[in-house]
Simulated scan of single mutants.
Amino acid sequence: MGTWGHKPFDNDTAADFAGDLDDAPQSERIEMLRAALASVADDVSSHVDGGRAEIAIAAAALTARKAEGGEEFQSEVCGPSSELPEIPKDLVSLALDAVSRLLVRDNDLWDDWSQGRDGEEWLAMLQRLRLVLSRESVASQESLW
Rank of each mutant, 00 (worst) to 15 (best):
Gly2Tyr: 07
Gly2Ile: 02
Pro8Ala: 07
Phe9Ser: 05
Asn11Thr: 05
Asp12Lys: 11
Thr13Cys: 07
Thr13Trp: 00
Ala14His: 05
Asp16Cys: 03
Phe17Ile: 02
Ala18Leu: 06
Ala18Asp: 08
Gly19Asn: 05
Gly19Thr: 01
Asp20Pro: 00
Gln26Thr: 11
Ser27Glu: 15
Arg29Asn: 02
Ile30Val: 15
Met32His: 02
Arg34Asp: 04
Ala35Ile: 06
Ala41Arg: 06
Ala41Asp: 08
Asp42Ile: 00
Asp43Lys: 04
Val44Ala: 09
Ser45His: 12
Val48His: 10
Asp49Pro: 00
Asp49Arg: 02
Ile57Asp: 02
Ala58Glu: 00
Ala58Trp: 00
Ala58Asn: 00
Arg65Trp: 01
Arg65Phe: 02
Ala67Tyr: 03
Ala67Trp: 03
Ala67His: 01
Glu68Ser: 11
Glu71Met: 13
Glu71Cys: 10
Phe73Gln: 13
Gln74Ser: 12
Glu76His: 13
Val77Met: 13
Gly79Ala: 12
Pro80Cys: 09
Pro85Tyr: 04
Ile87Ser: 04
Leu91Asn: 07
Val92Met: 03
Leu94Tyr: 02
Leu94Lys: 08
Leu94Cys: 01
Leu94His: 03
Ala98Gln: 09
Val99Ser: 11
Val99Phe: 07
Arg101Asn: 12
Leu102Pro: 11
Leu103Trp: 11
Val104Met: 13
Arg105Ala: 15
Asn107Trp: 10
Asp108Lys: 13
Asp112Val: 11
Trp113Met: 14
Gln115Lys: 14
Gly116Asp: 11
Asp118His: 01
Asp118Arg: 01
Glu120His: 11
Trp122Cys: 01
Trp122Met: 01
Leu123Gly: 02
Leu123Gln: 13
Leu123Ala: 12
Ala124His: 11
Met125Pro: 03
Met125Tyr: 07
Gln127Met: 12
Arg128Asn: 15
Leu129Phe: 07
Arg130Ile: 09
Leu131Phe: 05
Val132Ser: 14
Glu136Met: 09
Val138Tyr: 06
Ala139Asp: 10
Gln141Val: 08
Glu142Gly: 00
Glu142Asp: 03
Ser143Lys: 08
Ser143Glu: 04
Leu144Gln: 09
Leu144Ile: 02
